[in-house]
């Protein structure tokens, strides 16, 4: 279980990216985190991954405080062309992190091949990443994460740089991986449709500093289909609701300069009320705040 309490992060230039954010993610959950661009989603993900040390608050993964990169965690970045290493073959890219698992060369290669097969690229191992299309490269980075067998998979706008068709294929790949591997997945996206289609639950962040603006369970069956699911009334309703919430969150920046102090105060009050990680309460208070 991933538990985030009062997470705050401000950069050295004074920019506050996250302000006392509370979030709990159960084991095996596929959580979509959606919010306007530049709202601090990536910062949140980097804090969870232990890549940056938050300036305040607490993150625990399975009871242990996150201090540095947790052991069974993997990240898929948006920019596959920068995240994959061009001097290594696809297979070596996938196998590299397994050095941390103390596996032999043969075991690493076998695991890499298996992971490549599971993302539908059984024959790409000997090629170099730059010889593949964008969608295939992102499959390789997903394979790299899967081969590592993490219990928590973080995805930072993983489909932001691929075309629409590929994007849908990759969304289905994530659903399939989630079903097969039973890992916890946090998918950060700015795409409202995607957040509903992929998620078991959607958390909407409001714009910088990021806080949980709303937390909605996705009441769709686990079996999802790009055409059918997107046509369901329930999907349409959820999408509209998330859309409204994202837009509501996005309207805030206009009020920030004048109300910055007020914003901090408000979050303090909320914190004292002991709302904590119970995010349903957050979504209600978020939706009814007079300032919005």
């Amino acid at each position: 279980m991933l538990q985030i309490t009062g997470l705050t992060h401000s950069y050295s230039d004074g920019h506050v990216a996250i302000d006392s954010l509370d979030l709990t993610v159960a084991d095996g959950e596929l959580l979509s985190i959606v919010g306007p661009s530049g709202c601090g989603k990536s910062t949140l993900l980097r804090c969870i991954a232990g890549l940056i040390r938050p300036t305040g608050g607490r993150i625990t993964l399975n009871g242990a405080a996150v201090d540095g990169v947790p052991d069974d965690l993997a990240v898929v970045f948006q920019d596959y062309s920068r995240s994959l290493f061009p001097w290594l073959t696809v297979r070596d890219n996938v196998a590299l992190p397994l050095r941390r698992r103390g596996k032999s060369r043969a075991e690493r290669r076998a695991a890499a091949q298996e992971a490549l097969e599971s993302v539908g690229l059984p024959d790409a191992g000997r090629k170099y990443p730059w010889q593949l299309s964008g969608g295939m490269q992102q499959r390789v980075s997903i394979a790299r994460a899967l081969a590592y067998r993490p219990s928590l998979l973080l995805m930072d706008e993983p489909f932001g740089s691929v075309d629409a068709q590929t994007r849908e294929d990759l969304e289905d790949l994530v659903l399939q991986v989630h079903r097969a591997e039973k890992m916890t997945i946090l998918l950060v996206t700015h795409d409202i449709d995607e957040s509903v289609y992929v998620g078991d639950r959607v958390v909407v962040l409001n714009r910088s500093p990021a806080r949980v603006h709303a937390d909605l369970p996705v009441t769709l069956s686990a079996d999802r289909d790009q055409i059918e699911t997107r046509g369901l009334p329930e999907f349409v309703r959820l999408r509209a609701e998330v859309g409204r919430l994202v837009r509501g969150g996005a309207r805030i920046p206009g009020a920030v300069p004048a109300g910055a102090a007020g914003g901090i105060l408000k979050s303090d009050i909320r914190h004292q009320k002991g709302v904590g990680p119970d995010t349903m309460a957050d979504s209600e208070s978020g939706g009814t705040r007079p300032t919005r």
Binding site: V69, A74, V75, S83, W87, P97, Y148
Partner: peptide, 23 residues
Amino acid sequence: VAKESLRSFGFGTPAVLWRVSLP
């Protein structure tokens, strides 16, 4: 991003230098 990618798998600074920065 390349350095972060390796770091996110728990590799330390020397490993990042050897496997990402130098190549």
